[in-house]
Nucleic acid binder design. Structure first.
Lengths: 190, 190, 190, 190
DNA sequence: GATGAATGAGCGTTCATTCAT
DNA sequence: GATGAATGAACGCTCATTCAT
């Protein structure tokens, strides 16, 4: 029996990430992925049930890693506002250092695939994040609105800013970033 | 029902809007548009250079109409904060009354097509809107950040909220809307 | 506007018939048909909705022609037994002179496609034939069993005999044919 | 439920039979067989040279068993006509009690595989059966035609009747069966 | 003997666009 | 202006089989 080649799976993920980032999700076909990964396109179906399955699994993996990385340095003992700013800073830095990952996640979020993620992955995607905001609400530091609405004012503006930065239409200065952190906090704080 | 004496161009636009809204941008092919518009697919190439050209022109037309409609009732004489809230309210109402248009625009914004809009259309898309924020800045009511950043905190959170509302995951109460207006204002005001 | 080329449709049908006859139904792919007909495989979808649609339409056309041809010389005035033997003889001759058509029909009959023929074609396929047996029953010349059972003893043995003849395992002498006519008649007559 | 200690060969045969019966011969792939048999598809190639080899061997095995079972109760001493009717009855009962086996055999008979059975298996398939008809001919009870022609009028009509019965289009009453036995006998008797 | 990994070849179908009238 | 015909290229995926262990 031939042993499964860990590199092969990594190659498939890497090739997919590169293609989605450079050509777009809609231009990323199974055969292009295979060609880039130097394997036969039928081999992809040894590792994944379908193209959809491949993309979802890559998305979950990337987002899980990102969540871990961002929340890693947040300490329970710190003041909430402080933690919030560190978190958002981590997020921004992570994106800037891993633009491919960010662009992939963004494209996925805005595609029909997003609604096809199996429920079993939800915890991996949202848990760390939800419990953080929950803590802020319990300390009465945040507006009395849904967690969803809080995140909307936290992440989406940042995401938009950085997308525009990547497209070259805006600069990303320290002052810009400081502004964003302040505007987000102003939006959600009591 | 479409009237027989409608001109073909209107039919093409209508059919495209319906398809993108109901099936998604990636499932909208030229031949499906033609079938829905009761014309030959080659006729589409009499009116447009390519599929891309058709989609961009439809996008610009829809967004221009939306802008006009939203800014229509804003009077120069009013207090800025008041105008701002009316504007955002208009935006929300327009979206809720024209979900097709909103969903089309959103899909377009998040597709590779967005970066292919020819510069000549920029004025149609951004002018009304830019000059409004400019006025707020001149009155020193808004944070000293780029207009782009101000709009990010104004529109995107609303857009996200309503997308989630359309997907049925959240309710759209008066209180929700009031929260959003307040949060957006808190984010951008000095 | 380019006019539809009648030859093209004929070419598709001819190529399909040849392929099914020589390679078998399961080995007949759309691309092979296209290649044999000297057209692009996408052109086939200008004329037919699907591969299934193409095969069913060819089947109905061939069987309709065969029915017409076989029943053509049957006169109402003749004695039933006489007509019956002429009919079976016509059938045998038709098959022998058109082995391709026969082999196609046989393969189709024994494939899953047979159960997918739309009802609208039933009249074309069975009417002439059913009314003939009905007449025999009304004259009390045939056993009191279903028309279906009568046809089973009429056609299937002939079909089997000729299939075996085509495969080279049996000769087809006048005496053989005479035997079959007699055996079929003995089976169904009162 | 298949027992764990069943040997793999039996599992392969069972899985194949089930699949061909439920999905059809053309929908029965090696990998589906393997999945149903809970083995690796490459294991199948330990037991068989090819898919074709597997199907042929299963066919021969099933048909041999059926022949044995049907001819088992036929006694040499009985009157031929009596034996003939018992034989046909056995055949009918066997089919009805083993629809899977019957449907597999029928699909195989009407596929290109039938012509690929190696000669070495012919005895297993036809011997019992040929010698039975030979006896009838020697007693001058049967028409002076080839054994092949005799069998055509014996089995095929029954087969067709029961196929139609399985498809739900016809009932299978005692009277129906009696008719068939009589019609077949009328066809072959002197 | 048994198997998971791997694959080239092929499947039916749709695509955006061009052609010829 | 309008259109039905026509197409090469590409799509996601399955196939029977072989490989390496």
């Amino acid at each position: 029996m031939r042993r499964k080649d860990d590199n092969k799976l990594t190659n498939i993920f890497d090739a997919t990430l590169e293609l989605v980032t450079s050509k777009g999700l809609s231009e990323t076909s199974v055969s292009k992925i295979a060609k880039k990964a130097n394997i036969s396109s039928s081999t992809i179906y040894v590792y994944f049930e379908s193209k959809e399955d491949l993309l979802i699994k890559l998305y979950v993996k990337l987002k899980k890693n990102m969540s871990k990385s961002i929340f890693d340095s947040i300490e329970n003992s710190s003041e909430f506002k402080e933690s919030f700013k560190i978190l958002l800073n981590n997020f921004i830095n992570y994106i800037i250092e891993n633009p491919d990952i960010f662009l992939f996640i963004e494209q996925f979020n805005n595609s029909p695939l997003y609604n096809k993620i199996p429920q079993e992955y939800y915890d991996d995607l949202y848990q760390l994040h939800d419990s953080f905001y929950q803590k802020g609400k319990e300390q009465n530091l945040l507006k009395d609105v849904s967690i969803y609405l809080l995140t909307v004012y936290t992440y989406y503006p940042v995401v938009q800013l950085i997308k525009t930065y990547f497209s070259g239409e805006v600069e990303l200065t320290d002052s810009n970033i400081e502004s964003v952190l302040q505007m987000s906090w102003d939006a959600i704080k009591v």
